[in-house]
Amino acid sequence: MKSAVIVFPGSNCDRDCRDAVEKATGTAPAMIWHRESDLPDGLDLIVIPGGFSFGDYLRCGAIAGRSPIMGAVKDAAEAGVAVVGICNGFQVLCETELLPGALLRNAGLDFVCRRQDLEIANGNTRFTAAYQGGRQVNFPVAHHDGNYFADADTLDRLEGEGQVVFRYQGNPNGSARDIAGVMNARGNVLGLMPHPDRAADARHGGTDGLALFRSVMESAG
């Protein structure tokens, strides 16, 4: 499987994503600097990693979302390539409007950093098929702005169309309808606040994250 991880100034999970993807799929991803305007040909997966791109200046993900590489990421998403945005990467995907909604400051104002139980709300996606019907995973969360917001009509549509992929069990941040991860209507772009990349080694405390990347590989054939 051919994959790429996008690296911005202030990304800090780019290497976690690289290691997790390599472990899950057997192939190391290309690391692509944000100033590039082209992606390698024939990608099956693009990962937008967590961190504090551009220092979270202006809004989390806002400046990264307008960086040169994001034009190529948008084109790839439109061509059907799988895109996963994790934590800050989820914020970037909302800022580029590849995903609906926005991430607000946590309702409790605290930075939350803990292991988090999640429900797999849709197990029949390019990102969750390898969980083989499993309904619960545990990924770490570590964020200050993970409070998912969208208007009521959008939330209804997301729920109705199966676009809510992960839900919190015990909401850590005030997120609308306990949403932890959503995908686009076409089902090839996923954003989630919790970190599958940090649940990829027994020494992380669990390996629940690997099947997410494996799902993408299996769907790529």
Binding site: L58, P100, G101, F149
Partner: peptide, 9 residues
Amino acid sequence: EKLLANTVI
């Protein structure tokens, strides 16, 4: 519209 505000919120 392009950068300074996220008009979703």
